[in-house]
């Protein structure tokens, strides 16, 4: 649904002919104002909820009133800003944390030195959130080089080789897994139940999945087998 004008009419036509439609992976943008797109349910990650979820997971490592850094690699990106907003709201409400969002750019070298500069100016920072591999790769590099594991708790989004490896080594606490496999599987199940028993498809948030040190190795082998 990332391009409503391109796909909206096709879905309206399909629904007009009585074909059931569910959306997966990407919802229409929050600021979309065109004609409604009549899909029956959305099965995928809710960016904002996922941000809240990962922030709650890291709460145990974040003391009251702590300083927290969010590395934003693409300011203005609707999905990333929603992730950051979820994190910020939970940490402010639960810990009275001072959450700073830093524009780290997509350039990893700039990203690393801006994060390092931030930590130098704010040595009391207790946690670091990156919003995807483009933020995680330089952040993990920094944690490794400056031996920050144990001093700064880090969490991220999405699964790439570097992030999974860092979780296994204990440099990163967790990463949010969108669970694309679940998106494909649940949508088919829901459409089957609809066809067979007229059960209406319902929204399904797949972004509750977190990969942690306990699950990283298993998830990695399942990725290799093509299940994840």
């Amino acid at each position: 649904m990332s391009d409503p004008p391109a796909i909206g009419q096709v879905i309206r036509d399909a629904r007009g002919k009585g074909i059931p439609v569910v959306a997966i992976n990407v919802k229409e943008p929050a600021d979309y104002k065109g004609a409604p797109i009549p899909y029956m349910a959305y099965i995928g990650m809710d960016e904002y909820e996922a941000g809240k979820n990962v922030a709650r997971f890291l709460l145990a490592k974040i003391p009251q009133g702590a300083k927290v850094l969010i590395a934003m690699h693409e300011p203005g990106h609707v999905g990333l800003e929603a992730r950051a907003r979820g994190i910020r709201e939970v940490l402010t409400a639960e810990r009275g944390a001072k959450v700073e969002t830093l524009d780290t750019t997509q350039d990893p070298t700039k990203s690393l030195s801006t994060m390092r500069a931030f930590l130098k100016a704010n040595p009391d920072t207790k946690a670091l959130f990156t919003l995807g591999p483009l933020g995680a790769i330089p952040a993990i590099k920094m944690i490794r080089e400056d031996k920050l594991a144990g001093k700064i708790a880090m969490a991220s989004f999405d699964m790439d080789a570097t992030t999974i490896q860092a979780i296994k080594e204990g440099l990163v606490e967790a990463t949010v897994d969108q669970q694309q496999y679940l998106q494909g599987f649940i949508s088919v199940v829901q459409l089957y139940l609809h066809a067979k028993y007229k059960l209406a498809p319902t929204d399904y948030n797949t972004g509750r999945g977190l990969v942690t040190k306990e699950t990283a190795a298993t998830v990695e082998s399942l990725v290799k087998q093509g299940y994840r």
Partner: peptide, 16 residues
Amino acid sequence: LQFGRMSSMSPVWGDA
């Protein structure tokens, strides 16, 4: 140099 620095190379790097 960036590949060496990051141990990774992303196709989106060098954008600016």
